[in-house]
Simulated scan of single mutants.
Amino acid sequence: MLTARDVMTHDVETVEPDDEVGDVLTRLGKAQFNGFPVVDSERGDLVGIVTQGDLVRLFKKTDRAFWIPVGLPPFLETVTYSVDVSGDDFDVDVDRPISEVMTTDVVTVAPDDDLDRLLELLSGEINRLPVLDGDTLVGIVTREDLIRAVRDERAEA
């Protein structure tokens, strides 16, 4: 049976809690993936994870908009338009630390966790699983890693 150790990416790109949001956005824009584990390099501990979703939420302006439902005959359903009433541009502070926007409740797995556990966790809203050996980050398993491993295992059978 495949384990996290068998399918994980070993060379994990990470960011640190004090890295600035703007720097992480730049790195993420150049990356072939959509999130970074956040590791405190002094302690070597995984302290969070930051994803595209965490960063995109910084740019949502829903609290400064109101919604207007519009319906004109002969249409049976209305169409809702959002109108920004602030007149401001985005006011995202990209100089603040990533620790202010990262997710701290990180779901992790151990190197010996089996395929069923990985499938269970990655079949929901989670897209990546940091692999910890004790408190040390040793790899990461993404949905893509898991799909590729299952494909390769079936091809060998």
Rank of each mutant, 00 (worst) to 15 (best):
R96I: 13
R96L: 11
V79H: 10
D95Y: 10
L46G: 01
F75E: 14
E100N: 14
R143W: 05
G124K: 08
A149F: 06
L121T: 01
L76C: 00
G35Y: 06
K60D: 14
D23V: 03
E144D: 13
W67A: 06
T103E: 12
D95A: 12
E125W: 02
A65H: 04
D18Q: 13
E120T: 12
T3M: 05
V39P: 04
R148E: 15
G48Y: 02
F75S: 12
S86A: 11
E120A: 13
L129M: 07
L76W: 02
P97V: 08
E13F: 11
M8T: 10
V50K: 01
T80C: 01
D19M: 13
V56S: 05
R27G: 01
D84C: 07
A65E: 15
I147D: 03
D133Y: 08
G139Y: 08
V70E: 13
S82V: 12
V50Q: 03
L76M: 05
F36W: 05
D45E: 13
V12D: 04
V12H: 03
F75D: 14
D63I: 06
S86D: 09
T104E: 14
D145A: 06
P111H: 03
T9C: 02
T136E: 15
L115G: 03
E120G: 05
G44Q: 04
K60W: 07
P74E: 06
R5K: 14
F90R: 06
A4H: 06
D11Q: 14
L55P: 12
T14I: 15
R43H: 07
T3G: 02
A110H: 13
G35I: 04
V150K: 00
K30E: 15
D18W: 10
T62R: 15
V79I: 13
A65G: 00
M102G: 09
V92E: 10
D19G: 03
F75R: 14
L2T: 10
V24C: 07
L72N: 13
T62N: 11
D133P: 00
M102Q: 08
D112W: 15
T80Q: 08
R27W: 05
D54T: 04
D54K: 00
L76V: 04
R27V: 01
G71I: 06
D89T: 13
L46Y: 06
R148N: 12
P17M: 00
T142N: 07
D40T: 01
L146Y: 06
I68Q: 10
